[in-house]
Design a protein around this nucleic acid. Structure first.
Lengths: 192, 192
DNA sequence: GTCTATATGATGATAGAC
DNA sequence: GTCTATCATCATATAGAC
């Protein structure tokens, strides 16, 4: 079950470095060192450093959007769907810390190159998911009618994903705890 | 009044590039090109590329923390102080877009070097400011007693600063509008 | 204050032996 | 699958002329 090909092992090592130091600040030598091999040997597994991030980002995105699609297709009421989408996102931060961090830090810049154009598409797709959920929430009466849904969308998206900067997997707060607390703030506010 | 030394002009050009492409992705040639001079000429004004970000970040931080200090020292009630801190932050995004973006994107990594150790200090200082405001809010009865103030602090900090990624100075929403909407969500939640 | 010319080092990548 | 050896390129930075 925890079978991992050498390729996957190397990708994981690279992902941790990209997430921590940034893509550009990580050299192929850094990756090779961390893997205990020489830099040239990496090219037996991958075409280039670029193709390494590419593979890391695209496979993560595929998994995440599969989860969103499941929620949208479900039969829960609007509020439950919104909660589920938030929970799935925090779960992704827990399970795919490095991938989320890389996406957060590098997507904007990488997205300017042809090879990574799919990142912009995914961004649009994500917006569609959240706006659908929020609009259903408003029209069902679960959410306030005076909300600027576009702004609320950005608020949710940003707050959720930026948590990758401080969330510690295995720390005091589980991803369930964080999601609970966050939903409380989002849904009911912080005032008495 | 809008007098700008050549030095400041060059820093502004560099800041825009650092904010858009990232520090490492911006070469001294990029900066020189944008300024209409050759890369070697930049070294008449600055020691190194590093000292350019350094100057950009440190002067911005100084201004921002001056504003926070003013709020803390004031006589407003806790809730008004919290609102003021949020407003000052969105204002900073409006007035110092590039600086905020650079800080958001690069501070974590740059902070690992001695030269930028002050970034970690400022981070701690910022935490003190917000925790003070939130605790005063809770003990005065303005904020809910069941809040995890540490978590709320991180949510506020992250949401406020990450807005630099989408906020458009001069766009449809002014920084006042964004602050209003954000405070509404934060204080009262999005449910009916 | 900017240019010419260039030193110096790091980085991504390749070819072929083991 | 990894190593040895090495290349080409690019990036930061310097020195002195104009």
């Amino acid at each position: 079950m925890a079978e991992q090909t050498r390729r996957e092992e190397l990708l994981q090592i690279a992902a941790e470095l990209f997430a921590t130091k940034g893509f550009k600040n990580t050299t192929v030598r850094d990756i090779a060192d961390a893997a205990g091999i020489l830099s040239g040997s990496l090219y037996h597994h991958f075409d280039s450093k670029e193709s390494m991030v590419d593979e890391i980002l695209s496979s993560f995105q595929e998994e995440l959007f599969g989860a969103y699609a499941g929620i949208l297709a479900g039969t829960d009421d609007p509020r439950a769907k919104l909660e589920a989408a938030v929970r799935v996102s925090f779960e992704a931060i827990d399970h795919h810390r490095d991938e989320v961090a890389i996406f957060q830090n590098e997507a904007d810049y990488l997205g300017t190159f042809d090879r990574f154009a799919y990142l912009a598409d995914r961004n649009q797709q994500s917006r569609d998911v959240w706006l659908t959920l929020l609009r259903e929430g408003v029209s069902s009466g679960a959410l306030r009618k005076d909300l600027d849904v576009e702004l609320v969308y950005r608020f949710i998206r940003d707050t959720v994903w930026v948590a990758v900067r401080w969330y510690q997997p295995g720390g005091k707060l589980s991803h369930h705890d964080v999601a609970d607390q966050y939903l409380t703030i989002l849904l009911d506010g912080i005032t008495t």
